[in-house]
């Protein structure tokens, strides 16, 4: 498709046209460039300057790179970082695959009750965080429904401490994020599937391709831009994970579920505020995401 397209443009384009096209292209993006510059980059530069300072509240002084050195001797930061990366490695792939499966199943026009399933699976994303935190704490409490269920089916012999055991609390958080965001990601795939040319599937069916083959050889390659988008966005989301941890475990027990964003929040508002060090920790997220996105872009093969 795109080959035919570029071939076509090459024939058409004269210098004047190219100039005109370019100039109009800038018009399309100028508002965004200015807005993001003002509301994101200007504060980001300020935050960077802040990361070179340290002190309580408004008593800040320049300390150069001290904050960055301090990171390496900060066990809470290291715990937060390893927890966050653990969430990322386990949760993002599981969620993306689940969301893809749901969207493909729900895109089948012969399936009954599609509207119901779609809405039900999306609902967790709109449910208020407060409600969802209260209920997760209740479900996963030591005498909550989850334990009751597992006990009844003899899967465990005594109640598990889902929220107060350091290992299980991490699992609970991963379940919670997956529960909340799978439907959200499904929306992106469902909408993208509508823009896919149906005739390709018909052709494949005539050629005798099984649904699984269709999934791997048509759906996935066609959805590649959106899969790339969701995996980058989910990566960023997980690296900035805050809501679930804050509301379900408050980072505990004993920092076992602490994330980087939660730590930034604590440094700014929970402890005596050290905005300089908090800014330093956020720049670490920035650096991490840049590296990870770069890898994802490379793997996704976006470059032509």
């Amino acid at each position: 498709m795109s080959q035919a397209n570029s071939h076509y443009t090459k024939q058409q384009s004269t210098f004047v046209q190219r100039f005109k096209k370019n100039y109009i292209g800038w018009l399309f993006i100028i508002l965004s460039v200015l807005g993001i510059g003002l509301f994101y980059f200007y504060p980001m530069v300020q935050a960077f300057l802040l990361s070179l300072q340290s002190g309580m509240g408004s008593n800040l002084e320049y300390v150069g790179l001290d904050n960055y050195i301090r990171l390496f001797n900060d066990p809470t930061f290291i715990t937060a970082l390893t927890n966050t990366i653990l969430y990322l490695l386990i949760q993002v792939p599981v969620m993306i695959v689940l969301a893809l499966i749901f969207s493909v199943l729900l895109n089948d026009p012969t399936l009954k009750f599609r509207g119901f399933f779609r809405t039900a699976i999306f609902l967790p994303a709109v449910t208020s965080l407060v409600a969802y935190a209260v209920i997760f704490k209740y479900l996963f409490g030591s005498d909550g429904l989850v334990n009751e269920f597992l006990l009844n089916f003899n899967l465990i012999s005594e109640p598990l401490n889902w929220l107060t055991d350091p290992f299980l609390a991490k699992i609970t958080i991963i379940i919670a994020i997956t529960w909340r965001w799978t439907g959200y990601n499904m929306i992106f795939y469902l909408s993208a599937l509508q823009n896919v040319d149906k005739s390709m599937y018909e052709a494949a069916r005539i050629d005798g391709a099984s649904p699984v083959q269709q999934f791997f050889f048509i759906t996935i390659p066609l959805l590649k831009p959106i899969i790339l988008f969701t995996s980058i966005v989910s990566t960023i989301g997980t690296l900035q994970l805050f809501d679930e941890v804050m509301n379900i475990t408050s980072g505990g027990p004993g920092n076992a579920t602490m994330t980087i964003s939660m730590y930034i929040y604590n440094l700014s508002f929970e402890y005596t505020p050290d905005f300089g060090y908090a800014a330093t920790v956020s720049y670490v997220i920035l650096i991490l995401v840049v590296i990870l996105s770069f890898i994802q872009f490379k793997l996704g093969g976006d470059r032509e």
Partner: peptide, 16 residues
């Protein structure tokens, strides 16, 4: 100044 900050450190140690 540091009650809550110290407590976060302490609570991890208490687990151990």
């Amino acid at each position: 100044m540091n009650t809550y900050g110290i407590e976060d450190i302490l609570s991890a140690e208490i687990q151990q």
